[in-house]
Design a protein around this nucleic acid. Structure first.
Lengths: 147, 147
DNA sequence: ATAGAATGCTTGTACATACAAATATCCTGT
DNA sequence: ACAGGATATTTGTATGTACAAGCATTCTAT
């Protein structure tokens, strides 16, 4: 009888990569759930908020804000354009992204879903802890970004 | 001049879903990088460690350990089987997963990559902070899992 | 004025992951 | 002993994301 149950078990129980991804998956599921009433999954909701907050923003800036690659942003925008929520206006190599009326109409719905999401995880984790986590995570992101 | 630069900007700067995913993406990239010498990307490395640690483990248990869905585990195993690192032995509806010799031979390589990964992020974040993050993340995962 | 570098965006393609449904097997209560 | 439910795994399909390469445009240094 050597290793039968070992609950938290092996090496990777302490691995940051590992913990980060497990947590992110959970949060994404929770977020997609919360955003269900908007008809969008979480990333799209974030995109819509970003564009609504700063109409005319260019893809590269969206990419930086959302910390997703430009190609991903293109894909996200495409879909929202197709769905009639966003519109691209290109002049030369530059592109500006605007919400359509339908896109603007979505804002309050998204915002309320967002509040619910926050309430949900704060309810489960405690407000303190949730906030501390966000702090640490954004801090870490910044630190890993620099070099 | 209302909202021109707003660096951390809007609502989602404080969103846990958001921070968690940004961080996870970063960590995954770093991990894939670290596992490059093993020829595996991070998830596969974790799978190999899990199976090597407990040969004969069944997919469902792997799924629980790795916190990925069973279907994902099937896919991961398939690929490792195809590559000659794992082997499935099924009896009835049950399946046992074993490492092949090639799979076992991989262990030290993976382990060293793992150490490098850890060293890398601890170097960037500080050992303290890295550890605290792991603690909080695993704690949070557990808390969100329960209900 | 222009050639070459840099920039901004998009496309082709690949990968990890998930959900829902399909199988196949096992268990349980009568 | 067996019908119906429970369980374990796999399959079909879809999604989000990334990388590398491609184009088109703009900038820069001569």
């Amino acid at each position: 009888m050597k290793e039968q149950k070992c609950p938290a078990d092996a090496s990777y129980a302490e691995c940051l990569y590992y913990a980060a991804n497990a947590f992110a998956r959970q949060m994404t599921k929770m977020a997609d759930d919360a955003f269900l009433p908007t008809g969008l999954s979480a990333s799209y909701a974030v995109l819509m908020m970003t564009v609504n907050h700063q109409p005319g923003i260019c893809p590269r800036d969206i990419s930086q804000r959302m910390q997703l690659t430009p190609s991903t942003i293109t894909r996200l925008i495409e879909k929202m354009e197709y769905r009639g929520y966003l519109e691209r206006r290109s002049t030369g190599k530059f592109t500006e992204v605007y919400p359509t009326d339908a896109g603007e109409a979505l804002v309050p719905v998204i915002q309320s879903a967002w509040k619910n999401l926050q309430a949900h995880y704060e309810g489960l984790l405690g407000q303190e802890e949730a906030h501390a986590l966000v702090q640490r995570l954004t801090g870490a992101v910044a630190q890993l970004d620099a070099p």
